[in-house]
Computed example of a mutant assay.
Amino acid sequence: MSVAADSIHLDAVTKSFGDTPVIDAITATLGGGEFTVILGPSGCGKSTLLNLIAGLEGLSDGRIRIGTREVQDLPPKDRGCAMVFQNYALYPHMTVADNIGYALKVAGVAKLERARRVAEAARVVELEGLLDRRPSELSGGQRQRVAIARAIVREPRVLLFDEPLSNLDAKLRHGMRMELSQLHRTIGATTVFVTHDQVEAMTLADKVLILNKGRIEQFDTPDAIYHRPATTFVAGFIGAPPMNLLAVTGRGGKLRLDDGTEMALHPHDGPALLGIRPEKITIGGEGFAAQVVYREDLGSHTAIVARLPGGQEVQVATPIGMHLAPADTITLDLPQDHLHLFDPATGLRLETP
């Protein structure tokens, strides 16, 4: 099963509820055939933006184009989209096959053609042996597959997912991530996936669109978002533990804290926020002193919190087996190749030599 894929063009898309703005003049192009993840904290406007694309909400201003057609004034059924919700919304009295094929039946698709397409959708999501069961006889992961099959049986050019994995436990979520990735490669539809889970975003996406208070903070590949965050919001939102951000001043080729502690060599001149990922900080050698105040053993690594002389704290990710305890004094070093600088007033990334 494969379908043609349309790009989605958002042109100054705006949505307000009363006097409260939710989506603030967003302009972006979601590539045809790409897997785009809309990521952000609760209340940032992720689901609202997805609903605007689907036609479940009306725009306050702006335009939406899917392929070559402007769709902002079209009803949902005419936009060429199919949507999978967080709530699977299956009909409990219908079999799996009837749930999958219901939209085709309503659309008047002939019985033989309907049966063929239901069988093909069931094959793609590995439900062939469950078509005669009812939703109450299925596991959570199987119900999710039925909801996905119900969407793809329509052979949509655009497939929309609204936090579809949030009701599953950790093991099932991992399995469903792999299945969704394979599904995307199989059917080729333009896929837009809303989540607040950065692991889902970083593992599934071709591109990640990070929203904050209805505005785009960054729209780029997972690799670029992790290694070159455009703003302090992205730097602090992505990563576990997130990037450290320290107020520093550059002077004479060195970055220093307010108390004069030298943090790193760098040509920036003036105030800045210094960012560095916890796993890039090295322990030992020449550097600056810090005191361990907390530690967590996380299996793959140990995360510690260390307090600097001026009172600021940094998180450090270290290999398992490094024996550190609260109150230990350690020496930290910040490799210049892994430093990020941001404007303390705007939060925007500073490009420096």
Rank of each mutant, 00 (worst) to 15 (best):
M1G: 14
V3M: 08
A4N: 11
A12R: 14
T14L: 11
S16N: 15
S16I: 13
D19K: 15
D24Q: 07
I26M: 06
A28R: 09
T29S: 08
G32Y: 14
G32V: 09
E34P: 13
V37A: 02
L49N: 04
N51A: 11
L59W: 13
I66A: 04
Q72Y: 12
P75V: 12
K77C: 03
D78I: 07
D78T: 11
R79D: 06
R79Y: 12
A82P: 00
M83F: 03
M83N: 05
N87I: 01
N87S: 03
Y91F: 03
N99I: 01
N99G: 03
Y102H: 04
L104S: 03
L104Q: 03
V109C: 04
A110S: 09
L112M: 11
R123N: 09
E126S: 09
L127W: 05
G129D: 09
L130K: 00
R134I: 03
P135I: 01
G141Q: 10
I152A: 08
E155V: 00
P156I: 00
P156N: 12
E163Y: 10
P164S: 09
L165F: 04
S166F: 10
L168D: 10
K171Y: 12
E179S: 12
L180F: 08
L183W: 03
H184L: 00
I187F: 10
V192D: 04
V194T: 08
M202G: 00
M202H: 00
M202E: 01
L204E: 02
K207W: 08
V208T: 00
L211V: 02
K213D: 10
K213N: 13
P222H: 05
D223C: 08
I225L: 00
P229M: 03
A240M: 07
L245M: 10
L246I: 07
L255W: 06
D258F: 10
T261L: 02
L265Q: 15
G275L: 02
I276T: 05
G284D: 08
G284S: 07
G287I: 04
A289T: 15
Q291I: 14
V292I: 13
R295I: 11
R295W: 11
E296H: 12
L298R: 14
A303W: 10
P309D: 09
G310K: 07
V314D: 11
P319W: 09
H323G: 12
I330E: 08
L334G: 07
P335K: 09
L341H: 08
F342L: 07
A345E: 14
L348M: 11
E351M: 12
T352C: 06
T352K: 11
P353G: 15
